Simulated assay, not measured.
Amino acid sequence: MHLENIVIDAVDPHRLGGFWRQLLDAERLTDGPEGFEMRVHLDPGNGPEPGAFLDVCLQPVPVPPTEALRLHLDLLGGPGQAEVVERALALGARHLDIGQGDVPWVVLGDVEGNPFCVMEERAAYRGTGPIAALPLDSADPARDREFWSWLTGWAPVEGVADASLRHPSRRGPLLEMCAEPAPKRAADGKNRIHLDVRLGAGEDADAVAAEIVARGGAEQHPDWGDLPWRVFTDPSGNEFCVLPAPSGA
């Protein structure tokens, strides 16, 4: 398995996708009624190799999400932090006060109000590409680091969060497990941003599902019609999807 997609719910996927494509300098893959998809190249010399890219997918939802984010994007800023902020503002972002106080990073909202951060210089974020980190709320960061490491093949690394993972190539963003401000409740609804992992050649979907449950996750059965992927939650209740192996794999 490998981590393939960052998926964002959007009332207007075309508008929100255009914002993120320009801000991330990403390659547009699709733009239509079923959503907007772009590819962020982390290592242009390695083409479609897992770990050389992440896809960002905007999927349509009928109403704006209102739940607190449990996963968001931290963008690489460093010495160019001010320039990244100005570029985001020019594309339609706005400053947000979410109670962060006096911090060295900058909190912004995208064109649909989803919070994201532009980070200051941090050694842990060198060489990540435009997305420095994916902070994920966790009830038990050490436990969830082990779960997501098994799920994605990413390796534990030193970082600034309670627990962090990164692709073994040391390309791309960190997946950061951050102590949650409050537990995930059923009433909170689905996370508006989630991750997708894809099965590799020869991996059995039922065996993977059983292992997810054995490791503290749970399979969900939402009434979304006949889908080719399966929906799960991690041990802290964060949704993710497991996609089938590529055709011909």
Rank of each mutant, 00 (worst) to 15 (best):
L3Q: 10
I6A: 12
V7P: 00
V7H: 10
D9G: 09
D9N: 11
D9P: 04
V11T: 09
D12S: 10
P13N: 08
H14N: 09
L16T: 11
L16F: 03
G18K: 01
F19T: 12
W20E: 13
R21W: 09
L23A: 05
A26R: 02
A26N: 05
E27F: 09
R28A: 15
G35F: 13
H41R: 14
P44A: 12
G47Y: 04
P48F: 09
P48V: 11
L54W: 05
D55G: 03
D55H: 07
C57I: 13
V63N: 07
P65Q: 11
T66V: 13
E67C: 13
E67K: 13
A68R: 00
L69K: 12
R70C: 05
L71F: 11
H72N: 14
G78K: 03
P79L: 11
P79H: 14
G80I: 00
R87Y: 01
A88G: 11
H95I: 05
I98Y: 02
G101D: 03
V103D: 13
E112M: 05
G113I: 13
R122F: 14
A123Q: 15
Y125H: 15
R126Y: 12
G127P: 00
I131W: 05
A133D: 14
L134R: 04
L134I: 15
P135S: 11
P135G: 09
L136Q: 13
D140L: 00
A142R: 06
A142M: 01
D144H: 03
S149H: 01
W150H: 01
W150S: 02
W150F: 06
T152D: 08
G153Y: 04
A155G: 03
G159R: 03
D162E: 11
A163F: 00
P168M: 05
S169Y: 01
L174V: 10
E176N: 12
M177I: 02
A179R: 14
A182F: 11
D188Y: 03
R192M: 12
A201T: 05
G202A: 02
D204A: 05
E211N: 06
I212Q: 00
G217N: 01
E219R: 14
W224K: 08
W224G: 13
G225V: 05
W229M: 13
W229K: 14
F232S: 08
T233C: 13
P235G: 07
C241V: 06
P246M: 12
P246A: 14
G248A: 04
